[in-house]
């Protein structure tokens, strides 16, 4: 895994920080790589802007912050407006499609959308939308193995919500794999992502 800078952003309470913890744990504990996570949040318990920065690498991470993210995951319009312009040229944008309207996108940015909130609601709890996003992220980016992320999800959520979160993860993963298969223009990206591993 090359050094990858990732930002996950949304509102407090959407599980932004937990998503980053799951992905960081998957990389550093279940996949033998290195991960450093830092976070920014306002004084509000929920509702304020919230973002997590995650740096993944095969070698120890020195600089802890994200400067230009390779991958931006946004779950709110405010987060998109604020962090969209930071995304690296040719980077990957992952959005919750019902919460974010993508506009003014730079050429070369690969955009992937998922109705994660709707999926989470269908599973019975809106709260697990972050696990849907984590599954989708896993499928789209190929940075982490589904096994590693699955273990990290199971390990990071309360026991009584474990099964629900794992279902949500599988839903996002499956949807992501479907998006890649059904998007001929994105197959090249998928192949490139696999080679990069």
């Amino acid at each position: 895994m090359q050094l990858s800078e990732i930002r996950i952003a949304g509102f407090g309470g959407q599980g932004v920080i937990l998503s980053a913890i799951v992905l960081g744990k998957a990389a550093s504990i279940y996949q033998g790589a290195f991960a450093t996570m830092t976070q920014n949040f306002g004084p509000e318990a929920r509702g304020g802007a919230c973002s997590a920065q995650l740096v993944l690498s095969d070698s120890p991470v020195l600089y802890p912050y994200v400067t230009r993210p390779d991958i931006l995951v946004v779950i709110s319009q405010e987060a998109y407006n604020k962090f969209g312009p930071e995304l690296k040229d040719g980077g990957t944008l992952i959005v919750e499609q019902d919460l974010v309207r993508v506009s003014h996108i730079k050429e070369g940015i690969k955009v992937f959308s998922i109705p994660a909130t709707r999926f989470a609601e269908e599973l019975g709890k809106r709260m697990v939308l972050n696990s849907v996003m984590v599954g989708f992220f896993t499928a789209i980016t190929h940075l982490l193995t589904p096994e590693a992320v699955r273990d990290a999800v199971a390990d990071s959520v309360p026991a009584n919500f474990r099964e629900l979160n794992l279902k949500a993860f599988e839903k996002g993963l499956e949807y992501g794999n479907g998006v890649l298969i059904n998007s001929p223009e994105l197959r090249g990206f998928e192949a490139a992502a696999v080679v990069e591993e």
């Binding site: 980053a20 913890i21 960081g24 550093s28 504990i29 290195f34 991960a35 450093t36 996570m37 830092t38 976070q39 991470v61 802890p64």
Partner: peptide
Amino acid sequence: VVGHMTEK
């Protein structure tokens, strides 16, 4: 930074 940074 060290206090709020999450790592293994």
